[in-house]
């Protein structure tokens, strides 16, 4: 994905704010001609999982529709999601793989240790849904992004 320092900082901040629970939301932006997701802003959402929100997160269809509407108001699309891993590494869990929706989204994970955001990684789902591949994060200044 291509993004800005502000977007990465906002994801880290949401991870810190949600600690010790998982924070989650949507990545809004555009898709470049070569299929790379360019993330220009976030849409924060609530973690809707009914219990164990320290280890699970959920974004409902209604959350998606709200994010989609917010994206369209800015002439953007939903191009991915993010969530935090409190006191766990910034790598997809088995649950993340089992529950991931479509290939083509960028899935960002930020690890948060003792309330402080640490590593931030981006992933894409293989077309056959068998695994995540690490996605390169290209950071541009806000003026050019």
């Amino acid at each position: 994905m291509i993004t800005t320092p502000n977007v990465l900082e906002a994801i880290r901040q949401h991870g810190a704010d949600a600690y010790p629970e998982e924070g989650c939301g949507f990545l809004l932006g555009t898709v470049t001609d070569d299929g790379t997701n360019r993330v220009t802003t976030l849409h924060r959402a609530a973690n809707r999982h009914a219990e164990n929100r320290e280890r699970r997160y959920e974004l409902t269809a209604d959350d998606y529709r709200e994010a989609d509407a917010a994206a369209h108001e800015q002439a953007l699309d939903v191009v991915g999601t993010y969530h935090s891993h409190p006191d766990h590494p910034a790598a997809p869990s088995e649950t993340d793989l089992a529950e991931a929706p479509f290939p083509g989204y960028t899935y960002v994970i930020v690890s948060v240790h003792d309330g402080t955001p640490k590593d931030l990684t981006a992933w894409s789902l293989a077309p056959d849904r068998s695994e995540f591949h690490r996605e390169r994060i290209t950071v541009e200044s806000p003026e050019t992004a």
Binding site: C24, H49, R55, R56, Y57, E58, L59, T60, A61, D63, Y64, R65, D68, T81, H83, P92, S93, E94, T95, D96, E99, A100, P101, F102
Partner: peptide
Amino acid sequence: IVPSIAGG
């Protein structure tokens, strides 16, 4: 077509 998203 609206995805819902979950994970751990």
